[in-house]
Design a protein around this nucleic acid. Structure first.
Lengths: 201, 201
DNA sequence: CAACTAGGGTACTTTTCGTACCGTATTCGC
DNA sequence: GCGAATACGGTACGAAAAGTACCCTAGTTG
């Protein structure tokens, strides 16, 4: 009856996103229901569906609001940098935010159009810090130049993610991180320019 | 009215599982509904819920029926064996069966009690062939003995799985497999006993 | 000021899981 | 063999939750 000052456009969109973020942090993606988001934003599902085609799209948009960049480590040694990057990743995936990311990846279920939006947070963009850190190590002579390749550079973090997927652990113990670095990553990137395993004939 | 010869116990259980397997192969895990399985098995949901607590458990049980062991390669060279193992995994994950496995892992969502049942197919048991193949390579002098460790031995297959998760590809091209073997796996396991990256002090 | 657009309220359809009842066939203990 | 316990079959139901459809109304736009 009184002044209803109906929100529109960007204002309403922000309110919806903020409500989605709140639901996401409180209840995870599983608990993100369109009705609850609408209720919390003080609107209704219509307004949401006009902006996002489905629940997953809304979830991804809300997740992006939450994702934040972490500082690049620079300990002066590859081992320290690699461990710090792994610890950052471990913290992230152990956090409620990590659980949400996993749920979203799961819900995307290989749909490339959705995966592309999440890769900035989990995939290719994750390669950038590793390449930087590894580049410094190469300059220092700690690593062979031919390892400056995304596939090689990100081996450590891929192995750590594998721990989460396969073991379903809430958080990988630090031993595991150290093992990944010492048993796999450092030996891999330190190889001096031996014959790099070309096929025979 | 006439002789209904009602099935019980193991006979009924097999019928249900077989129906679940059929639904799984035809429609994937998403299409595996309790009602359809019951109808197909010529029974009703009661009989199912008496045996499996929920849809996921039934899906896992049905998947296990489908999973079959593959022969261990022995090409006489580590590179050939590794590539063959990767190609087997690639074929598996590209197949409808692989899609089902991914869906199940997704549905398990980190629940350890379910993950444990799937790890035989995707996780730890997958380490056994790699350790065998790698053991032969060590005996031949193709690999350093200290790499006979599950974490190191399975690096290649973990990287391949990562391709599926991150890229959402239906099937990894063979170049990727070759790259994983030549750029990562072989250099990693071939390291001669250098200083294995212990922490400084 | 009139026409158009976008929000709000609400109800509804659909799908599917999981549960509850109730009568009956089969098996098991005696 | 015979009665009691158990497991099946049929069916119906409750509970979410996604997504859709209308209709009315508040703002915006020209």
């Amino acid at each position: 009856m009184a002044g209803q000052t109906r929100r529109r456009g960007a204002a309403l969109e922000e309110a919806i996103l903020q409500a989605a973020v709140a639901e996401l942090t409180e209840s995870g993606f599983a608990g993100l229901t369109m009705d609850k988001v609408a209720a919390r934003a003080g609107t209704n599902k219509n307004a949401i569906y006009r902006r996002w085609p489905n629940r997953l799209a809304l979830g991804i948009a809300a997740y992006k609001q939450l994702a934040t960049a972490v500082p690049l480590p620079d300990t002066g040694e590859l081992r320290g940098d690699a461990l710090e990057l792994l610890r950052q990743a471990n913290r992230h995936w152990s956090s409620p935010l990590g659980a949400i990311l996993r749920d979203l990846l799961v819900a995307a279920g290989g749909a490339t159009e959705f995966l592309a939006q999440l890769q900035d947070q989990s995939g290719d963009a994750a390669a950038a810090p590793w390449l930087t850190v590894l580049g410094r190590a190469v300059a220092r002579g700690e690593a062979a130049p031919e390892v400056l390749h995304p596939r090689v550079a990100t081996v450590a973090v891929v192995l750590l993610r594998n721990e989460f997927v396969v073991r379903g652990v809430p958080s990988a113990p630090d031993d595991v991180l150290v093992e990944i670095v010492d048993e796999v990553y450092l030996p891999l990137v330190r190889r001096r320019g031996e014959d790099a395993g070309q096929a025979p004939g």
